[in-house]
Amino acid sequence: MNNVFELRNVYKSFNDFHLEDISLHLPRGYILGLLGPNGAGKSTTIKLLLNLLEPDSGEIQVLGSSYAHSETLIKQKIGYVGENQNFYQDLTIDWTVNFISRFYRTWNQEKLNDMLTNFGLKRQKQLKDLSKGQKVLFNISLALAHEPELLILDEPTSGLDPIARKEIMDILLDMLQDENKAILFSSHITEDVEQIADYVAIIIKGRLALFDTKEAILDGFRKVSIPKSTGKTLGSTLIANTQTLSEYKGMHSQPASLEEILISLVKEANR
């Protein structure tokens, strides 16, 4: 089994929103960045992957098994860091660590201690006294202590300062030194995804707009501008799909960023 997870034609509907026909997978050894505007379906996709929601139709396989058969076995090997994830805020770091550790068969306390020390997280501190950045770093440390094969993070870097974000990037790339592991993280910060993701999935209005390796996506789009002197008017710049791009005489094109690609896809979806 080369993929840590596979979603095949997954549908899930709610009263005011539905996720339509999502097919997505992630090979071991890589990071998948899940991009999209707020409310596009990123969190729903992640909840489906964790079996916090069940799909209306379609198939979900995680670490080679399905939740119907081996939910707790799968969850032994998943680490999860939620957006605004709250443990019981009146408990101390030590208490929480001790509580969580009892659920897992594997527990690397030494590694966890190192991480807590590195991040300056004092063991006797109550969780409600941690800053937002510290909370996320604590959650990630905790999620890595049972040495998961798949780490899932929902908006881990949103609202954090650049230093904390850098620290998180380092933790993720460190985990990937083991090529059997894989990471999925959702973000609306395209910069973070562009920097460290190997695969990128873009979800817009409940649909998968794009899913490929980051290199292929960046190759697939160009930022095009046509100088006025050529007499053609095509606006100032636009993002164009490389395949449909015929070379205009005098046309300038340069690499587009993920942000620019995302914005152009969102505009297209709204048209």
Binding site: D170, L173, L176, Q177, E179, D198, T213, E215
Partner: peptide, 17 residues
């Protein structure tokens, strides 16, 4: 590939390419 990716803080797939 993985060591360089970590050092440069870039995707594994970028270094691979």
């Amino acid at each position: 590939i993985r060591v360089l990716a970590k050092e440069l803080r870039v995707s594994v797939i970028t270094v691979k390419r």
